[in-house]
């Protein structure tokens, strides 16, 4: 009986305030279509006209100097524990990733030069091992697709 109480006390102590939270930005863009983009033909303006509604104002998303445009779905998973309510542990486990990332590069004339894409998975740390760095795939280029 005493042992049970101790176990119960430990369980309550270490699971108090266990929180799982997940944030997804622009989940609809997971299925964004890039098949229509033609290397050497599609222009910067055409890409913006068709996909621009999903571009954000972050400087990283509109790289004017390098003539690149980025469209991303970002996701964050966080796990935190409170040792004794309401005292939280001073840290949480986070994994934040671009679960889908499209990067389109343009040449000096404003025509598509290359299209890159990556897909990734976010992990619930510490319960899941984070995935290794995702492979970024060259989907379209003047020389044909590669990786």
């Amino acid at each position: 009986m005493r042992g049970c109480k101790l176990i119960l006390a430990l369980v309550v102590l270490f699971t108090a305030g266990c929180t799982f939270s997940r944030t997804v930005v622009n989940p609809e863009e997971r299925n964004a279509d890039i098949e229509w983009i033609q290397v050497g033909e599609t222009t910067w303006i055409e890409v913006l006209r068709k996909m621009g509604g999903s571009i954000s104002n972050e400087p990283a998303q509109v790289d004017v100097a390098n003539r690149g445009l980025r469209f991303s779905v970002t996701e964050t998973k966080a796990v935190s524990f409170a040792a004794i309510l309401p005292i939280s542990l001073p840290f949480a486990w986070y994994d934040a990733r671009r679960t889908r990332d499209i990067y389109i590069e343009f040449d000096d004339a404003g025509l598509v030069r290359e299209v890159w894409e990556s897909r990734d998975h976010c992990a619930w740390r510490p319960f899941q091992k984070p995935a290794p760095t995702p492979q970024v795939v060259l989907v379209k280029s003047a020389q044909g697709a590669g990786s």
């Binding site: 266990c18 929180t19 997804v24 621009g52 509604g53 999903s54 954000s56």
Partner: peptide, 19 residues
């Protein structure tokens, strides 16, 4: 649930572009 909490946040960021 005090000892177990779950939250999900969905965020939609849009742009309006005028040429």
């Amino acid at each position: 649930l005090v000892v177990f909490n779950l939250t999900k946040t969905n965020s939609g960021i849009d742009a309006a572009l005028f040429f």
